[in-house]
Amino acid sequence: MRKQIRLLGWTELVALLLLATGFVVPMYTRSVLVYSVLNQIFVGVIAAESVWIMLRMNLLSFATPAFMAIGGYTVAIAGQHDITDAFAMTAAAFILPALVAIPLGALVLRLRGTYFVLVTFVLSQIMQLLLFETPGLTGGSNGIAGVPPVTLLGTEMGSNRLVLQFACGLAILATLITGLLTRWFRQHFAAIEENEILAESLGLVVWRYKAMGFVVAAGIAGLAGYSLVNMLLTAHPSSFDSSTAVDFIAYTIIGGRLSILGPVLGTGALVYATNLFGTHGQYAQGLYGVLILVVVLAARGGIVGTIAAVWRRVS
């Protein structure tokens, strides 16, 4: 009777394929703008996937920038001590935020979902303050500049092309982890999303799955922070501003929360649109706001859901 659980579905494969095109782009163009937009997309996709994992269980997380900061600063501080090995740093950028998330998740996720939203919002505000208040460790308001580029199997990933390809690799890794997690616990996450009360009364330890999702989401966000620091070669508090949490939420909701294609396509579309604003990037948030209203009121599936609905009507 139990449905066979596949490790990855076609939506994950399409998402991975889309991201993988980032590897070949440098063969066709050297445009700084294209590189910059793609880099932003790769960072954004990872961060949005962190949001998406929690959204699978009807939880909205504002904590992404906080965990990004832990991942990013871990790498920057290690870089100061000449530790730049890509594998070690990837592991550290994932594991440290995840460890911080364990006690926090256990504490908050036993309570009503609302508490989660409020606490994660406050958490990213607090992380900002912490960054400013600990100049000895994080450089305070100056941040940590001159982070050395990462080394992969002895090669320094210093050139624009290699930085882009490394960011692409991190995005693929994050998508793999996210895909595996949400497929593996598909039944549990879906049950919590659809009817938490019923799931719990049937014996599902709901908070434990929420906490598990939260811990992995924190690790994924850490990878986003790593990718961001690696792109800028700087860890600065402004990179992890709490207001960026809203951007990642917008990417996910507007892209569509039904499949992992949502955060991927949503990030791509919105980062591209934001760049159209040019130097007036701050106005993009207004666009996000309007689009969120539209999605919630009129197009619940977001971009992906709308495409799917149109497709079904056509065929």
Binding site: N58, V117, V246, I249, L297
Partner: peptide, 17 residues
């Protein structure tokens, strides 16, 4: 709950922009 939360978030972005 989630939809209303997102609506108010959207409104906030619209107001501030």
């Amino acid at each position: 709950h989630l939809a209303t939360l997102m609506l108010t978030l959207g409104l906030y972005l619209v107001i501030s922009t």
